[in-house]
């Protein structure tokens, strides 16, 4: 009798269709966190995990769960989990970015003329610690500190991971530190606010030995900032001997040139597209 019952049970088991395993992944998975995929049915076979930065293959033994270490899902995006024995079953799941932990901060330009409206832009991209863009809303705190003591700040929420602002450059030439902060992370960039075009370019002359020395007054822009040393000032002298030109760089705030003069001479000055005054001088002394 026992043999008959055993035979009947075995026949029944053989006659029943094999039930395929099913995979179930959690709904909410953050990048870099350990989790498990639940297996309903036979979990014996080969397990595949395909994701944005992952292509893993491993054998799994019977069990109700397949554990996935956080290191396998550091990149946010869609993943495919596949389990193959006689046939393959699969599930998809989405890994979202972890908490905002760092920033990419793009600040342009690195040099800007003073008093220029909306000349500076700062774009902050919120990232988690695995460099995934954090698409959920985060608050980015922008702040500006000039080395002349002035400062300002502005909070801006991210939109799809990006927050940005525009700034007008200060009236005084200085370095401005532009910072963006999210959570405990702060990124800082430096923008040099430099003098604008020369304004009221003015020259004067005096004699030294037999040469006429022509020099500018301290060269400043219209806001009173010193035009940086190295800026070229072009002197042009016309007299009986012909025309003489010197492209002299500003050094210590002024530009200077020595010129021989024959008879009466006319001297003019320019810096870039800015013209200065003209001088008429008599012959050599």
């Amino acid at each position: 009798m026992r043999t008959v019952i055993t035979w009947l049970l075995c026949s029944l088991a053989a006659a029943m269709p094999a039930t395929a395993a099913e995979l179930h992944a959690p709904k909410d998975i953050a990048a870099g966190t350990d989790f498990s995929i639940t297996v309903n049915g036979d979990s014996h076979g080969t397990f595949y995990l395909i994701g944005p930065a992952t292509a893993e293959k491993r054998s799994v033994e019977n069990g109700s769960e397949i554990s996935i270490p956080g290191t396998d899902i550091e990149k946010a995006g869609n993943y495919q989990a596949i389990l193959c024995s006689d046939e393959c079953v699969s599930t998809e799941f989405y890994v979202h970015a972890a908490e905002a932990d760092r920033l990419s901060l793009l600040v342009h330009p690195s040099r800007v003329p003073v008093a220029t409206t909306n000349a500076i832009s700062a774009v902050a991209i919120a990232l988690d610690r695995f460099h995934n863009i954090v698409f959920s809303h985060a608050q980015v705190d922008f702040s500006v500190n000039s080395n002349n003591g002035s400062s300002a700040s502005h909070a801006q929420p991210t939109n799809r991971g990006i927050a940005w602002i525009r700034l007008t450059s200060a009236a005084k030439a200085s370095s401005a530190k532009i910072s963006a902060a999210v959570g405990d992370t702060t990124e800082t960039r430096v923008v040099e606010q430099v003098a604008s075009e020369a304004c009221n370019l003015h020259i004067k002359s005096y004699w030294e030995a037999n040469h006429l020395v022509v020099q500018t007054d301290p060269v400043r822009d219209c806001s009173g900032n010193n035009v940086p040393d190295g800026t070229v000032v072009s002197f042009t002298k016309t007299d009986r001997s012909g025309k003489t030109t010197v492209d002299a760089p500003i050094k210590k705030g002024i530009a200077k040139a020595e010129m021989p003069v024959v008879g009466n001479a006319r001297i003019s000055v320019a810096s870039g597209v800015v013209l200065g005054n003209e001088l008429n001088v008599g012959g050599a002394r």
Binding site: Y48, Q80, I82, C84, C88, L106, H108, S121, V123, R166
Partner: peptide, 28 residues
């Protein structure tokens, strides 16, 4: 598209067919 023109964020609506192969065998 950033004010300075150095960054563009784009949404891509893509239609794809994906085959995952282990050696020569299609598993998905």
């Amino acid at each position: 598209y950033s004010p300075n023109g150095d960054l563009m964020q784009i949404e891509d609506d893509a239609q794809l067919e994906m085959q995952i192969l282990d050696g020569g065998k299609v598993i998905q």
